[in-house]
Amino acid sequence: MQSFGLAHVEFLAWAALWTVGLSAIAFVGGGLLGFAVALLRVSANPAARLAAIVYIQIVQGTPLLILLFLIYFGVAVIGFTGVPAILAAGAGLTIYASGFLAEIWRGCIQSVPKTQWEAAECLALTRWQRMTRVILPQALRIATPPTVGFLVQIVKNTSLASVVGFVELAQAGKLINNSIFEPFTIFVTVAVFYFALCFPLSTWSRSLERTLNVSRR
């Protein structure tokens, strides 16, 4: 029987690239959707606020695993068959990320001091101008460290994309394990790959927290 060697590490390295790609899709997609939901969440319209709250509660109250299964089987129900795994996984992670990012960013928008909102109103800025010129630039500063921190969660959670048949790092580890059964070596190596991806992000998030001088809540 073949034992764990360099070829396997190379296979894992390729899979790690897919993990990075999937994380990027989830972050960009989740960021756009999450930003829209965050704006709805702080809008003046109570119906929009309620819709955003319900959306966030549902996404945060169901496991990502169930979300992925729902999308995977859901697209088949709507009538699309043979959807590539990366789209199903990307869509699931996008929804997951949007629910959490919306809530993080809502906190950041609302933590901009009330006097800033009032001052903008006194200057006769429209609601849109007030948002884009006054509130969001300040919220961005507060939002950067937790957003980078959440990136770590996204990278880690791409490991669940294996359930819809997407071959990323964790799934690659499982495949190798199925053929040579050296679970300890294989999954430690997989963990090292994830650590190499996530640790710089964690460290970056912490140093941003210090340099942007945002105290932890």
């Binding site: 880690k156 959670n157 490991s159 669940l160 964790a170 394990n177 999954f187 994830y194 640790f199």
Partner: peptide, 9 residues
């Protein structure tokens, strides 16, 4: 900095 799935395995 590592996924729960890998920890479980």
């Amino acid at each position: 900095n590592t996924p729960l799935l890998v920890q479980i395995f």
